[in-house]
Design a protein around this nucleic acid. Structure first.
Lengths: 341, 341
DNA sequence: AATACTTATTAAAGGCTTTTAATAAGTTAT
DNA sequence: ATAACTTATTAAAAGCCTTTAATAAGTATT
């Protein structure tokens, strides 16, 4: 049940924080009406939060015919988040505030390449002691993650089956979230572009281990039964090839030998498969892999398979930025929802 | 916010009902501990519900060292549900209690074939006046449904774009749920087989409009951006055919000319596509379309495409029964969650 | 400038549930 | 059979949010 006083307080706090951050500033009446929480309760929380320095009074509103209302802003520096990217060749980190503004970036030698968890721990220790306001840690990894535990990360056996979330939450007493890089990217896209939160998105990329996809269905990350969801390499296509083979090898027979780009066909076919199965709202491609022109050709080619009215939007985005944004938004969610006091 | 007294009461009620129905019977202490609601609150609700006849005292427990506890059971006859299936050639209905026990079945001439909503209204009117305890109506239709509104139902234009839920809730003042037949079936399978509620399931069938699928991903029904999700007919496959064509026309070249059943290959390929994209826990086939032997052949054929450890369970089920069960469980959900007093 | 009118904020009362204490109803041991 | 001990239930007190009433602080009008 969610009726204990503590969970109530937590919920009210996150609603107030979310609204203040989203709308930049608010009065008590606005909060009360929007959040459907009574005025006295809002008033009590606001007083407490102002005392803690979590929110700041920014003066009085223009009068709307009566007494002028006090307007409050969230203090974005009240809490900070730390996002860490474990990539093959490098390990970067970013410190950001509740608005997603970056306070510091940095890197350490690749935790994955060195196969050394201790390196990561030391990095976090240093950052956390430099920035005592850090209240959440988001870690992105190129592998499958199950509730903070790294489930499958080919090539980096030291990290296989490691409960990163459990370990660091114990170690630092700070909420931790761990997420797969593609899932973080698709979440980042969703947040960044203001996608409605129950839509379905697919983020396509071609990684070093072959192409793959990050999936959001009805707004939720899809991991699959054996964390195999999004492994679109394996989708069977024409000519007894799967998607990866078709992409790499090109056509094996003459029909489309004169296709300008032999990758168009497998991609369009994959778009059709995705549409016929999950009918997503948008499919996102990486900006270093396609351009607007190719996108349009793909769209046309896909409508060979699927009635055009059902085809998703095909868009292009910046993968690294989405990834960053996704990790940040996971971290900010922890700040907003998990920090209680 | 969910803190208003009314929504609180509603939530407590549904929790008590759910637990009593799932566990057959309970004491106040059991309810209090399991639901994490204080004993006095449970006690108050139980007293009220017993007075209404919603629950029944079934005597005292054996002593566990002290005063013996009273044990309570839910009275399954307290509320009834009505489920109606609109099918091409027939319209059937079922009246059931909270345990899913069927009190009466019946049919009227096909509402769809006659293209006559009034027929349905009259049928419900009669049933509801015969059984005043009916407190929920679940309607299954062979078309796309968006929040109770029939969105797309080829062939029955009178029903196109009809807000069935809104209309009947207004008309009868009883909660109504409308669901697509395949979605109801996959929900029914989930409930009936006690599938964990965040797993992904695919229900495959070959309807008169070609094959299709009902999808549950992370436990939620997937409708898609344009209600096209599950239209697996359109999945591109080998030999420039989509799934439907491959199924209907058979192979067009020689490689697999001696395949025992030429439908094996397209189905296995579809299983592979589903796995590579959403990696479901289980794929369900209809018992009048396949048997155990074929299932095994499909499983083997699929592992040509996908590492076997990622393949879903392939199972067989009774479609009509799952459909019925799905509608019933939607109806029972309304009884449990929406009835307040 | 004084009065009527708006609107924000504070204060008091009421309705929930939870926590804690008290009582009732059994069981076990002497 | 009585005392000591368990456990269920009832009763009272406390906490928290909401509703309602009262007050404060402006604006507009005469």
């Amino acid at each position: 049940m969610n009726t204990t006083p503590k969970s109530m307080k937590k919920e009210i706090l996150s609603h107030i924080r979310t609204y203040l951050l989203e709308s930049d500033s608010a009065t008590k009446v606005e909060l009360s009406e929007r959040l459907e929480i009574s005025f006295p309760t809002i008033s009590k929380f606001i007083a407490q939060m102002e005392m803690n320095g979590e929110i700041i009074s920014v003066g009085l509103d223009e009068s709307s015919g009566g007494r002028r209302a006090k307007r409050y802003k969230y203090n974005p520096e009240y809490m900070l988040g730390l996002a860490i990217y474990l990539e093959k060749a490098e390990t970067n980190y970013v410190i950001f505030n509740c608005l997603g503004e970056i306070k510091e970036r940095g890197d350490v030698s690749s935790v994955l390449e060195e196969n050394d968890l201790h390196l990561l721990t030391m990095c976090i220790e240093r950052v956390v002691s430099d920035y005592p306001k850090i209240n959440s840690i988001a870690i992105g990894v190129p592998g499958s993650v199950d509730n903070g535990r790294i489930f499958y990360i080919p090539g980096y056996e030291q990290f296989q089956n490691l409960d990163v979330k459990g370990f660091y939450e114990e170690h630092f007493s700070i909420p931790v979230v761990v997420e797969n890089d593609m899932n973080a990217a698709v979440l980042g896209y969703q947040q960044n572009r203001g996608v409605k939160d129950n839509q379905s998105l697919v983020y396509l990329y071609s990684g070093q281990n072959g192409p793959g996809a990050g999936l959001l269905i009805n707004g939720n990350v899809v991991r699959g039964n054996t964390f195999f969801a999004g492994e679109v390499s394996f989708v069977p296509q024409n000519n007894n090839q799967n998607f990866r083979q078709a992409l790499e090898n090109g056509p094996k027979y003459d029909d489309i030998a004169f296709s300008m780009d032999y990758q168009i066909e497998p991609i369009s076919s994959l778009v059709a498969s995705l549409t016929a199965i999950i009918n997503p709202h948008t499919i996102i491609f990486c900006n270093d892999e396609v351009d607007e022109e190719i996108i349009e050709i793909i769209a046309i080619a896909s409508s060979k398979y699927i009635p055009p009215e059902h085809l998703p939007n095909l868009t292009i985005s910046d993968w690294r930025q989405d990834y960053l944004y996704g990790l940040q938004s996971l971290g900010i969610n922890l700040l907003i929802n998990e920090t209680i006091q």
